[in-house]
Design a protein around this nucleic acid. Structure first.
Lengths: 341, 341
DNA sequence: CTGTTAGCGCCTTCAT
DNA sequence: ATGAAGGCGCTAACAG
């Protein structure tokens, strides 16, 4: 019953080479004759070798990894940073984490182009603009693996994207909104963060699609882009509320929730349904206070873990884990998980 | 910045003993003088030792583990079995999985009492009855670790419970139902599986609590206990629908979903909101078909993984993982994860 | 280009 | 009651 475990050693024996060579082929490392590569690959498939991820994580790794994350007062990324720090102790990677203005395309492109040759991989939240795409392709071309987080650049040759399907996440928000605002007539607004980020745009598109499909009695409007800045978000939402007497729903597709909550605390239509993204002190408090009604969440610990796994994993392999994209979690007041600290 | 990792070796040096002895203390194994135990414990806390779960999983384990799961046509447990099989290849444990009528208290108690002395641990879904409690206490007393899954027996001395908080899960279902049936008047029904299972009872209690709090216009009734049997569930739901013209919501707290779906296919009030538990072919199809509107889910892979971890983990330690109880996941049509196969 | 060696952190024999 | 030695599966230095 217990399926025979195939080890690198077995493959090596069958292929008539050493474990090291198999390892090289497995990880697409240079320095193996094409002929040998084929022999190893043949053995690999004929035996049905499957790597043991656990063993890989405990084995001494090495190399430098650069992590470039947005820096401006953003609780979600603060959390992500903490998760990376947690994972750091497990790997022996030389992790260099930098917070920067990753929402500015030229800055991000410059940062990417400046990454050391020593670097084995770069992990970042990618803006989907030409210069960033170019920088990513350049890195991959020279052998530095690029892993995108949360927001993807599908066109670029990045080795992996870690995050959930933002379009589906938007649809999820839309479906919840459709239920929350059922039998109502009025206006639903969407507030995004950045227009150069695929994730916010995709979320908005998915949201709109569902509302359009299912809620003929709702009018959908744009509340603008708050650039994830609480102050700007507060202004935008305050204006929105003032100008939209029949507002029944608000979807906050980006960050800046603190500002949204502040604006709503001053003036909010009774019965307004609010849906946001990511669990932070702010969204958590908003859920508990009944100000937000649902939050769409992706697990930051899982993001950090999979991102580092992707750094180690050979590019020949498939998606970033058990099931590819991350789960789209729906969190309401009732199933709020305990706080991290 | 990188916190110094404390290894067993470090603890051993400080305590003036060998790694083996530290390991014995760590895992509450016999054969260490009380005096020595204290010395090791002192070193343990003063250094702030934290075990490396990864290394533990790769290290050669051993011993026999009995797994007793309900057998009667239950897709959720079929899934769980598959996950245990997946995990089996990672550990070197001698896993003996038996499907049985775990919903019958005498049978379960007998099975528990019959577990081999060789067995290092027993993993099971516990009925909360006196004979089962007694059997569990007896096992723990003789040193066989008992881990309860999905449904707990808080009174018994089991080493760990792996699953989510069923009361909170029920509240979650209740909150969703409150939204779905917002502004409606009518009847909401609850269908449970077994009355001897804590999980179903707790879910029902949580559900009722929220409906009572938030929906003064809804009447709540019991649809009965289907013993997780699809046929019985079908009959109960058909009767329910026939006798309750103003039915607006149905909460299926147990299994037997196939029967529920069948009954609703024949006759269902328009706009009926249905909430069930666990992702299986049946609930998945029901969500896609718009028959069910939400499903409350706990991750089976996570259950299997944590249960086996609990087998290995010393009893001195805390909860069963990163965060204790499992996450209560809300799944709707829009965030349905890809099927396992 | 390829093989040998050593080691990650823990657990388990086996010996003492 | 304790210690020493070996191995889990993989990766990475260092040789050849």
């Amino acid at each position: 019953m217990a399926k025979q475990k195939i080890l690198i050693e077995d493959v090596a024996r069958v292929a008539g080479v050493s474990k090291s060579t198999v390892d090289r082929v497995l990880n697409a490392r240079p320095g193996v004759r094409a002929n040998t590569v084929e022999r190893v690959n043949a053995a690999l498939v004929s035996l049905g070798y499957a790597p043991n991820a656990l063993a890989r994580r405990i084995a001494p790794s090495s190399g430098r990894v650069d992590i470039l994350l947005p820096g401006n007062e953003n609780l979600f990324f603060d959390d992500l940073v903490a998760r990376f720090a947690e994972e750091e102790s497990r790997h022996d990677l030389d992790m260099r984490l930098v917070r920067m203005n990753a929402f500015d395309a030229p800055s991000l492109a410059a940062a990417l182009n400046g990454v050391s040759e020593q670097s084995r991989a770069v992990i970042t939240v990618a803006l989907d603009t030409p210069e960033v795409r170019d920088a990513i392709d350049r890195l991959e071309a020279r052998g530095t693996r690029v892993i995108t987080l949360v927001s993807d650049v599908p066109q670029a040759r990045r080795s992996a994207y870690i995050g959930f399907d933002n379009f589906a996440a938007g649809r999820t928000a839309g479906a919840l909104m459709a239920q929350f605002a059922a039998q109502k007539t009025g206006t639903v607004a969407v507030l995004v963060g950045h227009l150069s980020l695929r994730d916010h745009l995709d979320r908005r598109s998915g949201f709109e699609q569902v509302i359009d499909e299912r809620c003929p009695d709702l009018r959908l409007i744009q509340a603008g882009a708050c650039r994830d800045l609480p102050d700007l978000a507060q202004t935008l939402v305050a204006d929105l509320v003032a100008e939209t007497p029949d507002l029944v729903g608000l979807y906050v597709a980006g960050a800046g929730n603190r500002g949204v909550v502040a604006a709503l605390a001053k003036a909010a239509p009774p019965g307004l349904a609010v849906i946001g993204h990511e669990l932070t002190e702010v969204t958590r408090a908003a859920l508990l206070a009944g100000r937000y009604h649902a939050v769409i969440v992706q697990d930051t610990r899982e993001i950090a873990r999979r991102a580092l796994e992707a750094v180690l994993r050979p590019e020949t392999e498939e998606g970033p884990g058990p099931d590819g994209l991350l789960a789209i979690q729906i969190v309401i007041k009732e199933n709020l998980p305990p706080a991290h600290f």
